[in-house]
């Protein structure tokens, strides 16, 4: 994959519902590992077992790479295992009404753009993708819009700069500060005075 995230194109998989938490994306028992390997097999494991018609079970959505969600997607636990499980399943971008903050940051850290749209466009997209799973969604990070079935919708994207410039690995960026880090440390009473 390109080292930049300007435009993501792929088929969609719709996941209706608000406040879908990271325990549902990847139940805690699958976090018992010292790596992220194999998480894709367990994405939405419990939901899929209880709902045979769960989108992640359906043939017509296999091979999709853009996840369509509702409000506050990814709330709850900070486990990066959640976006890792989605990424390893094949998800390259997420679009919906809104995202929980820690989840969104974790997605950016993996180079997965999360784009937010207003409720009207978001609801329309959820329905349109469900009806036309074979059509492609375009997430245009650069132009801040989402295109489906010739309809272009404005979208906002957090951390756009990092995705466009390929700097979502923050460690490299933060290291550039060099000694300035220790200078700040020395200025803090709790590290220098007591």
């Amino acid at each position: 994959m390109s080292p930049f995230r300007r435009r993501i194109v792929g088929r969609g998989i719709p996941l209706p519902g608000n406040d879908i938490d990271t325990d549902r994306i990847i139940p805690a028992r699958f976090l018992k590992s010292v790596t992220f390997e194999g998480l894709e097999q367990h994405v939405f494991a419990d939901d899929r077992l209880q709902a045979p018609d769960h989108p992640f079970n359906e043939d017509r959505y296999q091979g999709a790479s853009i996840l369509v969600v509702g409000q506050n997607f990814g709330c709850g636990s900070s486990r990066e295992h959640a976006p890792e499980a989605l990424r390893r399943w094949g998800i390259r971008g997420i679009v919906g009404e809104s995202f929980a903050e820690i989840f969104l940051g974790n997605c950016t850290a993996l180079g997965i753009p999360c784009m937010s749209m207003d409720v009207e466009d978001s609801d329309w997209l959820m329905e349109a993708v469900t009806e036309n799973p074979e059509k492609q969604i375009v997430l245009d990070v650069e132009k801040e819009e989402v295109i489906f079935d010739e309809r272009a919708m404005p979208a906002t994207i957090a951390h756009r700069e990092q995705l466009l410039t390929g700097t979502w690995n923050a460690t490299r960026v933060l290291l550039e500060a060099g000694d300035a880090i220790e200078r700040v440390a020395r200025g803090l009473p709790y590290l220098s005075e007591y």
């Binding site: 900070s78 486990r79 990066e80 295992h81 976006p83 820690i102 940051g105 974790n106 850290a109 993996l110 690995n169 923050a170 460690t171 960026v173 933060l174 290291l175 500060a177 880090i181 440390a185």
Partner: peptide, 18 residues
């Protein structure tokens, strides 16, 4: 703040967060 694993790496390596 609660953080994800990539940010745990950031703090370990730089003692900072973006």
């Amino acid at each position: 703040f609660g953080i994800g694993t990539s940010q745990v790496r950031d703090v370990l390596a730089t003692q900072c967060l973006a």
